[in-house]
Structures are given as C-alpha cells and as structure tokens.
Amino acid sequence: MGSKSRIAKYIVPIIQRYIDENNIDTYIEPFVGGANIIDKINCNIRIGSDLNKYLIALLNHAKRELPLYESVSKELYDKARTAFNNGNTSEFEDWQIGNIGFLASYNGRWFDGGWAKPGYEKTKNGQRYRDYYRESKDNLLIQAPNLKDIIFNSCDYNEYELFGCVIYCDPPYVNTKQYANATKFNYDEFWNTMRFWSQDNIVLVSEQSAPEDFKCIWEQEVSRSIKATDKSKSTEKLFIYNCEDSYLKTK
C-alpha cells in the first residue's frame, strides 16, 4: 500500500504549484490508493476516492486515529482472504478487511501478493529482519494525523462531475500486473474522461505512457519492489492534456 510514497517528493510540488498559481479551492484524487500524495497537498477541500470500499473504510478508520490490528497471522490473513473471495465478509468490519488485505499482503497487493511473512532478507550490509506488516501499519499510523481533513469516499472515478479543480489520477497502469478488481479497466474510456475533465479542470495523470495529446511534464526511474535484493526499476511519468480546449489554455 502506498507505492506513490517513493515519488511524492517529486510530484507533490508540481501539483501544489498548479493549485497555488491558479487559486484552486478543491483538489481531488479519484484513485487515492494509500493517500501518499493527497496527505501532502495543501488545499481548502481535499477529496480522495477509490472503488475499493475496504480501502476507504481503512483510511476513514485511520484518519480518526483508531487502533489497527497489532499483528496479522497467516491464519487470520487466510480467513479474511477466503471471506473476501467468497463475497461474505460478515464476520469482519470493512476496515478490518482493508487492514488485513492491504497492510498484510506482500507489496500491499490486496490479497494478490500473498501474506507478507516476516523474516530475514539479504542486503549489501548483511541480513536484515523485516516485519512487513508492522512496517506498513506503523507507516499508516504516522500518516494518520495528515488524513484528518480529507474527505474519503468509495465510488468509480467516472461518477464525478467536476469544475475548476485540480485532479490527480493514478489509474491502474497499462501492461502491468493489476489487482484482481482492476483487470477489466477500460483505458480508452479513462483517457476520454481525462480529456473531458481537462476542459474545465487541471488534470494530472501518473502513468508510464499516454496518448499523443498528453504531454509528459516529469519522469523519474524508481524501484518497483520493497525487497532490498530486488533491483527492478520502472519509469514513473506525469502527464497533462496538451490541446487547445484544455482549461489552462482557455483561461
């Protein structure tokens, strides 16, 4: 959970500049994920949403600084995953499913990555013990005070009707491994929505590639894994709509 924490220091100033220079009052993230961008944005109204209701329940729980699971065993993880996969989570509250599914899954992959078993990993300085769940939980607890004034809700991104906002979108990346609930993501519809929103709003999109009418305004190579021994990299990019009918060009 929270892959954008690795690039927040780069893209938050870019987003903030668009807000400040255009006197924007409302900032929206329709794919809020771990809220690692929105929690650093300064704007009168901040709204974060996601289609996953368990994620939103977890964020709303955390922003009230309520306790999380002290630990998540393999047995508890398997029980929650089975309940979710069977569509019957009545034994759990929504925030509990979110807590287990995001914080206790390897790489935060929402039950797709398997239980994040604690143990030793090899680093250039020798063996290091990692308790992945505790690291994820502690990070969320530290983050919690910065979530207090954010409005979190569960909805599909295309349910929004927006005007005069700065919108940052971090959709499922094309040609990468997706969460199970994002495998049918309609990219054509998404980019058409970004074009439509861009007529009345400032829209910024994180992706690795974009259609030709979107301009890359920033890029950076970043690590793809939480494991010290995994040296795989990807190039993160930030795009903005670059046509004459965009909000910035018609102001």
Results as ranks from 00 to 15, higher is better:
Tyr18Cys: 05
Lys40Glu: 14
Ile100Asp: 03
Arg64Trp: 04
Gly98Tyr: 01
Asn88Glu: 05
Glu189Asp: 15
Asn60Met: 04
Ile37Lys: 02
Asp39Val: 03
Asp245Pro: 02
Asp245Gln: 02
Leu66His: 04
Ser90Arg: 13
Tyr247Ala: 11
Lys251Glu: 02
Gly119Leu: 12
Tyr10Arg: 12
Tyr27Arg: 08
Ala182Asp: 11
Leu248Ala: 08
Asp39Met: 12
Asp78Met: 14
Leu66Trp: 03
Phe163Gln: 07
Ser49Trp: 01
Arg64Leu: 12
Leu103Thr: 06
Ile97Gly: 00
Gly33Leu: 02
Ile19Lys: 03
Lys215Thr: 15
Asp138Gln: 01
Tyr179Phe: 14
Lys137Cys: 10
Ser209Ile: 14
Tyr173His: 07
Cys243Tyr: 07
Lys233Asp: 09
Lys124Gly: 10
Ala116Ile: 09
Asn85Met: 11
Asp156Trp: 04
Pro172Leu: 03
Ala80Glu: 04
Asn125Ile: 08
Pro118His: 08
Arg224His: 06
Ile150Ala: 06
Asn52Phe: 09
Trp191Leu: 09
Tyr168Pro: 04
Thr26Arg: 07
Ser206His: 10
Cys169Gln: 00
Lys148Ile: 04
Tyr129Ala: 02
Leu204Asp: 10
Ile41Lys: 01
Gly87Lys: 10
Tyr106Trp: 10
Ala57Cys: 07
Ala104Val: 08
Tyr129His: 06
Thr235Ile: 09
Ile15Cys: 13
Leu147Ser: 00
Ser154Met: 01
Gly33Gln: 00
Asn42Gly: 01
Arg17Asn: 15
Pro211Trp: 06
Leu141Pro: 01
Ala80Phe: 02
Lys63Cys: 02
His61Thr: 01
Val166Glu: 00
Gln199Ser: 11
Asp25Cys: 13
Tyr247Leu: 03
Ile37Ser: 08
Phe190Ala: 13
Val166Phe: 00
Thr26Tyr: 09
Phe31Ser: 15
Ile45Ala: 01
Lys124Trp: 09
Lys137Phe: 02
Asn146Gln: 02
Glu121Leu: 05
Glu121Asn: 10
Tyr241His: 10
Pro30Cys: 00
